[in-house]
Amino acid sequence: MDPVLDNLDLFWSGFLRSLGIAAWAFAGSMVLGAVLAVFRVSPVPVLRAVGTAYVAVVRNTPLTALLFLFAFGIPTLQINASFYVFGVCGLVVYTAAFVCEAIRSGINAVAPGQAEAARAVGLTFTQTLGQVVLPQALRSVVPPLGNVQIAMIKNSAVVGAIGVGGELFSVYARLSSAQGYERLPVLLGVAAFFLLMTLPAGALLAATEKRLAVAR
């Protein structure tokens, strides 16, 4: 394991960089995904169509293709940003499609009687969703959302291919190729640092699930 121990500082900075990417992508995809889910269940046909089309297109596009579209396509429209920003945006857009579907499944799991009752007492669409349906949906949505976000953390490795330097996967390329360290230990090191992100995320998930659980 010498290649890892000799370069712990490099791994650590790569870890922090990857963690940063994942944190931004988490926040962004949760917000965008929730908005899309609301679109998909909204009574306005146009919004529903937008939500459905978004999920259909983005969920069925390979992440790498999406990232390269962001990195090299958007600049041709004279909109420029750093590759870090493009990378995070690509990851947010991609993950949001899955977050949207997870949340929508939770909304669908709430018994229709709940929404009907809410409407019957005169709540608006926003109130019905915000005060009756979503709080209940949230409980059943925690495990699938967790899956999506853990997958996102691992997907963040792909962002390294579009010029976002310094994250864990670049560390791997740098050590194993440019500096000629043996590949396997370096890869194991990268995997270990990814576990350092995903395992606590899983634990956090289990805790959240427990907290939100209600005796039925």
Binding site: G163, A173, R174, S176
Partner: peptide, 27 residues
């Protein structure tokens, strides 16, 4: 990514953010 030139240039940089790395030169 992973090439000798990408390592050599590092000592000339003001910050690591100046270096952008891809998988192939075409990018």
């Amino acid at each position: 990514n992973g090439s000798t030139p990408s390592e050599n240039i590092r000592e000339y940089l003001a910050s690591p953010d100046q270096l952008v790395l891809f998988e192939v030169y075409d990018d």
